[in-house]
Nucleic acid binder design. Structure first.
Length: 295
DNA sequence: CGGGTTTGACCCGCGC
DNA sequence: GCGCGGGTCAAACCCG
């Protein structure tokens, strides 16, 4: 675990039609999403920068509604517009995307699945607390990583609470929970059986606390997506400008829900606060933005 | 000893 | 109704 550089390409939702993929109400704003997914508060930065073996990342966002049937969400997806098709439901996705990506360079895409169906169905109705079901939308954010290590360092502390064998795969799926009290974020990690170098990480929920300072010193937000991490060709934003992921996210949501497609102007001007991140001067990050949300 | 991991059992929803 | 598979629990175990 020491080689590779991380190259990430954010594309867009592989499998869905932009016009129907989202139900904005079901998604949290991007920052939340990222935060919940450890992507913002330095987590991914950690992963990208500090995880030696990480070489490529593929990401996706899922807003989950538990109510949807998997057939619903996955079903029609039929390869959204010429992009890589990536079935978001993880159970069946394995083969699907392994197939898709094996042999090709993996591109990072912001995949939004309305819940990825996969686990949403059962979610948590453990016999114990049946009174309270956490049915509501559990925001999910998943990404594919080409890494030799399964559990990427993301700044948060996790406790493994389970492991299951995955169908048709020699690699097990591990379940982690954030160790911070009252934080219900979960993370699921599994490796592609077709391409063992690929790891699928899915975050569920959002952290209710800041990243536990510590682990790796301080990681500046700007380093979140480092130049080496991102490569993509898409609509550029003004380099050096700061933006809010939330804005982007919301814009995306809007565009998804029927509104006109977003434009960088929108993205930058909208403010949904929370954290704002500085775009690196080299403009790399700017590339990622539009591509993440335009679709 | 506290905190994390392992692992088999259990729960539950879904499809047949 | 039943079996399957995913997700979670929790006791046992490990480790610093």
């Amino acid at each position: 675990m020491t080689n590779s550089k991380t190259t990430t390409t954010l594309d867009s939702l592989p499998n869905y039609n932009s016009s129907q993929v989202f139900d904005s109400s079901s998604y949290m704003n991007f920052t939340e999403c990222l935060q919940g997914s450890n992507l913002v508060n330095n987590s991914l930065a950690t992963a990208f920068d500090l995880s030696p073996s990480l070489s490529e990342v593929f990401s996706s966002v899922e807003g989950s509604h538990q109510s949807r049937s998997s057939a619903d969400q996955v079903g029609d997806s039929g390869g959204g517009r010429g992009r890589e098709t990536l079935v978001s439901t993880q159970n069946s996705s394995e083969a699907a995307w392994a197939e898709e990506y094996s042999g090709k360079s993996i591109k990072t895409s912001l995949l939004q699945a309305e819940d990825g169906g996969e686990s949403s169905k059962k979610v948590n109705n453990k016999g114990k607390k049946k009174g309270e079901k956490k049915d509501l939308k559990v925001p999910r954010f998943s990404f594919i990583t080409k890494s030799e290590v399964d559990h990427l360092e993301d700044g948060y502390r996790w406790r493994k609470y389970g492991q299951k064998a995955v169908n048709n795969s020699p690699y097990p799926r591990s379940y982690y929970r954030c160790t911070t009290q009252k934080c219900t974020v979960k993370k699921r990690v599994e490796r592609s059986f077709q391409d063992p170098s690929i790891v699928i990480t899915t975050y569920e929920g959002q952290h209710t606390h800041p990243v536990p300072t510590s682990l790796r010193g301080n990681l500046a937000p700007a380093r979140l997506f480092t130049p080496s991490v991102l490569t993509t060709n898409s609509i550029p934003l003004a380099a050096g400008s700061s933006f809010s992921y939330d804005s982007l996210f919301m814009s995306h949501m809007n565009s998804k829900s029927g509104a006109a497609s977003i434009n960088s102007q929108n993205i930058i001007s909208n403010t949904f606060h929370q954290q704002q991140y500085q775009l690196p001067d080299n403009g790399i990050l700017q590339d990622i933005v539009p591509s993440m949300f335009l679709n």
